[in-house]
Each structure stands twice: as structure tokens, then as C-alpha cells.
């Protein structure tokens, strides 16, 4: 029987390297996937430009942050970027509304098949991709300031006397808190407000909702505004936690889509669950359990090998394997997403 401290050590170890990073990354993916899923549910297409729109919003926020910092403004222990966020959101909303007017509206009016809209979003993706690089360049940008840690690994060790440390970054804390608030707000909006109800009605049955006097333009506009806000916030939180680089944001598109699909696209709750499924499948399957097991079993049983299911080089493939398996069992995702 392992001692209490061993169990605690194993628990802390697991929390520090699997649970906390997984929750933070999962939350970032979930916010991104929420935007994708809203657009899919209401505008009825998979928006491939999402990753680059995310980069755009983050870029504006970074520029605004730098400006604020140069003016000597700061947000105490919190990152200044949170103050600059509204500006980033405003710019992204503008970008989305303009692209909708220039590009997507035409196909919506023509009632084009969804794949046409997907392809149009691919065009928007290319253009925004280029614009972002023209403005801010290709470099890595860091814009985090304020207090970096809520809890440092060493402090935790000193505090508890355990072998293993537990670190919580403020960016992780902020990410989770903001994600919870946003998800709450979004569900309240969709369930309780008039605009939210009309969005759900439009999503469920477009013709019927038009009959009952819902203004489709308004629904579309609100959808873009919410999606743009979610996207920008997701991008900024991600950038605060890691760093900003246009190429990485483009690459984020795939896991975000995987998250939205695996949860059942068009279902907000599915996007959230999907985000965590993708994030945790990466970490859980490639994590070597040797150290955790060593704490839990008698010394003589301690494993020789790393107890790793698959090498980290396969982590990206692993999240897709999980995706494919989920789809085989539930062809429209965990929460039975929309089929167009």
C-alpha cells in the first residue's frame, strides 16, 4: 500500500503536467471551436478563414497593447492586452462584416451549396493570411506583461513539502476564467434573449424562422459579431499563454476544426467538449506514465520502460485518430451535430 504522500505526489505530478496544461489548451481550442460552430450552425458553412481571422484579431490587440504600453498604461497584475482587447474585437468584427458583405452574402443570396462557401472562405483565408504578414511580419511576438504566476512550482514544493511541484500560470488562470464567463454569457444569450432565440430558430429551420418574421440580416450580423469576439478572445488568450506567430495561428485551424467536428458541429456544447477531447487526447496518449506509476506501486514493481503508448511525434496524428474513431461510433459527433 503506497503512503499518502506518494499518492499526493502522483496526483500533483499528473495535475501539473497533464491536467492544467490540458485544461488551458482545451479552453483555447474550445473558444476557437465555438466560433467555428456558430458560423456553421447559422451561416451553414465551415469557415476555413477562422485561424487567420484569429491571427488578425490578435495582431490588432497586440498593436493596441504596444500603444498602451508606450503611453505608460498598465493593468496592474493583469496583462495590458486585456485592456486592448475591445479594440481588437472591434477591428475583427469590422473585418468579418466587411468580408461578409464583399464575399459571403453573394453566395448566401444565391443559396449556393455549402462547399462553395467553404471555398470562398479559403479565398478569404489566403488574403487575410497575407495581410497579417504584411502588417506585423512573420516574427514571434510576445505581449504578456503583469504577474506571470499564480503559483510557482518551487513555492508549491516549499509550501507542501511534497516532491513534485505544481505551477499555475496567470495566463492559464485568466484563460479558464474568461472561458467560463464567455461560455456562460453565450448560453444565456442563446437561451434567454430575443436575438439569441431568433438565432437558434434560424439555425434550426431557416424557412420557418423567416415566416415568423425574423430579420435574417440581423441574425447574420449578430452571428459574425459574436464569432469575431470569441475568435479574437481565443487568439489573445492563446497568445498570452504561449506567443503570437501568424504561422502558428494558421496551423491552429486544424485542431480547432477537429474540436468542432468531434463534438458535433453546430452544437455549442459540442465545441466545448470537443476542445477538451482534442487537447487531452494529445497529452494523455503521449504521456509516459512511468513516474506516476512508480509513486503508486511498491518499489520492486517500479517499471523499467517509460509506459508511453505512442511517441510525442505522433501526437498530432493521435488527435486525428481519436477524431476518426469518434466519428465511426457517432457519425455526426458526440453531441449529434448538424448535417447540411
Amino acid at each position: 500500500m503506497p503512503e499518502m504522500t506518494d499518492i499526493l505526489n502522483a496526483l500533483v505530478l499528473f495535475t501539473n503536467f497533464v491536467l492544467i496544461p490540458g485544461i488551458a489548451y482545451g479552453s483555447q481550442l474550445a473558444l476557437g471551436a465555438l466560433g467555428v460552430t456558430l458560423i456553421y450552425g447559422i451561416l451553414r458553412f465551415s469557415n476555413f478563414a477562422h485561424g487567420d481571422v484569429m491571427a488578425f484579431g490578435t495582431m490588432v490587440t497586440i498593436l493596441a497593447t504596444w500603444w498602451l504600453q508606450s503611453m505608460g498604461v498598465s493593468f496592474g497584475p493583469l496583462p495590458t492586452a486585456l485592456l486592448a482587447l475591445p479594440l481588437g474585437i472591434a477591428a475583427t468584427v469590422l473585418l468579418c462584416l466587411v468580408t461578409d458583405k464583399l464575399v459571403y452574402r453573394y453566395y448566401r443570396a444565391k443559396k449556393s451549396v455549402p462547399v462553395t462557401l467553404v471555398m470562398a472562405s479559403l479565398g478569404v483565408m489566403f488574403v487575410v493570411n497575407g495581410i497579417v504578414r504584411f502588417i506585423i511580419g512573420t516574427d514571434d511576438q510576445r505581449f504578456f506583461d503583469g504577474e506571470r504566476f499564480i503559483m510557482k512550482a518551487r513555492e508549491f514544493k516549499n509550501l507542501t513539502g511534497l516532491n513534485e511541484g505544481l505551477a499555475i500560470k496567470s495566463s492559464q488562470g485568466i484563460t479558464v476564467v474568461i472561458a467560463i464567463i464567455l461560455v456562460g454569457l453565450l448560453f444565456w444569450f442563446l437561451q434567454k434573449t430575443r436575438a439569441g432565440k431568433s438565432m437558434r430558430a434560424y439555425s434550426d429551420n431557416e424557412d420557418l424562422s423567416l415566416l415568423s418574421g425574423i430579420d435574417p440580416d440581423k441574425v447574420v450580423r449578430i452571428t459574425w459579431i459574436i464569432a469575431a469576439a470569441l475568435t479574437t478572445i481565443a487568439g489573445v488568450l492563446y497568445g498570452l499563454d504561449k506567443s503570437f506567430k501568424p504561422f502558428t495561428y494558421f496551423q491552429l485551424l486544424l485542431p480547432i476544426f477537429a474540436a468542432a467536428i468531434v463534438g458535433g458541429i453546430g452544437q455549442p456544447i459540442g465545441a466545448i467538449v470537443g476542445g477538451y477531447v482534442i487537447a487531452f487526447s494529445e497529452v494523455l496518449i503521449t504521456y509516459p506514465y512511468k513516474k506516476v506509476v512508480t509513486y503508486l506501486v511498491p518499489e520492486s514493481w517500479a517499471p523499467e520502460s517509460l509506459l508511453q503508448l505512442l511517441g510525442t511525434e505522433y501526437k498530432f496524428a493521435v488527435s486525428f485518430m481519436i477524431l476518426v474513431i469518434v466519428l465511426l461510433v457517432r457519425p455526426t459527433g458526440i453531441f449529434r451535430g448538424k448535417v447540411l
Binding site: 456553421y40 465551415s46 467536428i261 458541429i265 485518430m321 466519428l327 448535417v339
Partner: peptide, 21 residues
């Protein structure tokens, strides 16, 4: 054999996933 039962975007993401693998 495995994935063609899936519809539009679900098929798309499944093929994408398999190609990544």
C-alpha cells in the same frame, strides 16, 4: 470502407485526419 458512411464535412475532416496520419 470505414469513412464513406459519413456526410459532407464529417467525411472531409475524417479524410483530412487520415491523411495527417
Amino acid at each position: 470502407k470505414v469513412a464513406l458512411g459519413l456526410r459532407s464535412d464529417y467525411l472531409a475532416i475524417a479524410t483530412l485526419g487520415i491523411s495527417e496520419i
